[in-house]
Amino acid sequence: MKALLASLAAALTLATTSFASAQSFPERNITIVVPFSAGGPTDTVTRLVAEAMSKDLGQQVLVENVGGAGGTLGAARVADAEADGYTLLLHHIGMATSATLYRKLPFDTLNAFEYIGLVTEVPMTLVARKDLEPTDLKGLIEYAKANKDTVTVANAGIGAASHLCGMLFMSAIETPLVTVPYKGTGPAMTDLLGGQVDIMCDQTTNTTKQIQGGTIKAYAVTAPERLDVLPDVPTGSEAGLKEFDVSIWHGLYAPKGTPSEVVDRLSKSLQAALADQNVIDRFAELGTEPSPAEDATPAALKAKLEGEIDRWKPVIEAAGQYAD
């Protein structure tokens, strides 16, 4: 009984102080909702950032996984949450693409959130089974055009990074190939390793170690410059493929109506977290780097989201595939 009384008392004091000014934010644990299940790349990014943010804010930053429906369930949860800065959302590029992929979203992507800042932009790699004939990207494009009925492109399901990148590759080379969807990156990568499918385009977080280990072949990275972790892999434009520059960017959001002082505090905290050496080191091992301080701002994230919605709308509509 004592424990119950004690926790009741603690809760009461918590309640009375929560009306205090935003100056003293944060006064209790903050929860970042990840709209995917635990263990995936977005979850990993979030946990690393959350830990660093805890240090800066002096309060525990917890991670809650609300997976399902391509990330839209978790986003909807945060859109409906109280706008007090204690419930945040860390979502990737899917925030922009779901606006087109889902025709019936329960929230208005552009008007349901306050922006805190960009977290990281993970480049993609165009990879293939290790015994595929072509030796460079040019050869691959020719090969794909000549064998478009038999070349298979794996992806991790509708709306996944690999699905978006695959669509972009096919639209860049103006050749539809045979798409083979999987449930998640794991099984797709397994079949690529086993040579059951031909090519895939996925985040460096999933492919770097395999490329370094020589179990798959890399044709291009989708970044403007070559990556430190994969110095031998050319960029798309180097090899003559324009408009094949894509990254899986992650952003941190709060529900619409969160006080601007709170958003600023969170944005500062995000910048501090992204400058944390542990975060930088871990991100580097994943083949990515934290967004620079000037991008970890509300304005930069807003511009990114708006630009990306416009960019992907025609690509998705041309493919004619929707997720609902």
């Binding site: 926790s7 809760a11 918590l14 309640a15 929560s18 644990n29 929860t31 917890l62 809650e64 109280e82």
Partner: peptide, 14 residues
């Protein structure tokens, strides 16, 4: 274990 559930929720004024 620190599961991210709130002990008392907004309906009770928390």
């Amino acid at each position: 274990l620190g599961l991210p559930f709130r002990l008392f929720g907004p309906w009770l004024g928390y």
